[in-house]
Design a protein around this nucleic acid. Structure first.
Lengths: 189, 189
DNA sequence: AAATGTCAATACGCTAGCGTATGGTAATCA
DNA sequence: TGATTACCATACGCTAGCGTATTGACATTT
């Protein structure tokens, strides 16, 4: 509840992280300044020092999310040289119950602003591109690689929602592992 | 803007339909009484005659959606006797840009109330069950049919979001057609 | 014709949340 | 040490939207 007990002063990053947590679990529309301030142990006065308004916060928070997501891929996926292994790694990662997936799935239906749509599109296209690359490197022609990566990515998106819908949250790591392996067997020849 | 120019009196169904339209395009959280009243050409006085409060409207609207969705399936999918043909019909239907899909994909990330989660789960389980039946009738064993239907349904959910997210970027109607055929080939042996 | 029922308009109070204005405090700098 | 800076608190006004209370206008029944 009060994760900044020792730290006296807040940074813009603290606010961004707080916003991302709300987005992950309740959606962008639930990002409210005063409740967030309470949670961080300060008042609005702090907020309007760091940000010009609510939209500013949302924008910065989503950009932060995009950067963190990119770093994750750069560290865990792209270094895998073998394309088949790389796809496997991606499927495994995509089934892990981490914040970036929660945020992504929440944004997918919460398109209240153009900010959201824009970032969502950019992130999706970028993710699709490295999936497609992997399939291309496995010998698919362009059209096949396009369709196949689109389908694989759809399975990922669908999985996020299904697990939320059917279990109330993302499944535990054992179930996720099992599912990832099954899907991988179907989608990686 | 004013679709009830001739009709003087509103019914509860009119309000439910209005709510469903908002849900389909903006999400449940955007369902507001006064704006909806304006759109329907009346005031709040009408609303509180037909419903006890906002939650009441949302609940009734979502139940209405579920019934309409069930009717659609009963009419267009279940009558197809051949299981392979039935799956094909379902994939075709699932790619059509009709309201029921819009609502479904919106609900998927807009889980503000328990009402939504409950209905969403019910609808999803029901849809999965007739998908699973089709695969069973095609000779899959229970575990396979379960996993396969889950994956097929994930592709459906993913497709809904992808087309929304990438609109204007990737899929023109020719690509969409190509993709649909590709997916069907992968998911229906 | 009177009474009742059905549906809607209007006026009101209430709350949550946004954004502004101003003041305060502790640290740092000149 | 006085002044400035960085950060936060407090108080205020404003709007959207919820829900209630009351009244009004037809339509139907008696």
């Amino acid at each position: 509840m009060n994760q900044v007990a020792k730290k006296k002063l807040l940074t813009a990053e603290d606010w961004q992280e707080g916003a991302l947590n709300v987005i992950a679990h309740q959606g962008v529309s639930k990002v409210a300044i005063e409740p967030l301030a309470k949670e961080l142990g300060v008042t609005k006065g702090s907020f309007y020092w760091h940000f010009s308004n609510r939209e500013d916060l949302v924008k910065q928070a989503l950009n932060r999310w995009r950067e963190k997501d990119k770093e994750l891929i750069n560290e865990k996926i792209l270094p895998v040289k073998n394309p088949k292994e790389r796809l496997l790694a991606w499927f495994k990662l995509s089934a892990e119950p981490i914040q970036t997936h929660l945020i992504y799935s929440t944004l997918l239906a919460d398109r209240s602003d153009n900010i959201i749509s824009k970032i969502l599109k950019e992130v999706t296209l970028e993710r699709l591109s490295y999936l497609q690359d992997s399939y291309l490197q496995m010998g698919y022609d362009t059209a096949q690689a396009k369709s196949q990566s689109l389908m694989a990515y759809s399975v990922y998106v669908g999985f996020l929602h299904m697990s939320k819908t059917l279990y109330g949250s993302l499944p535990d790591s054992r179930d996720a592992e099992e599912y990832a392996q099954y899907v991988a067997k179907q989608l990686i020849p």
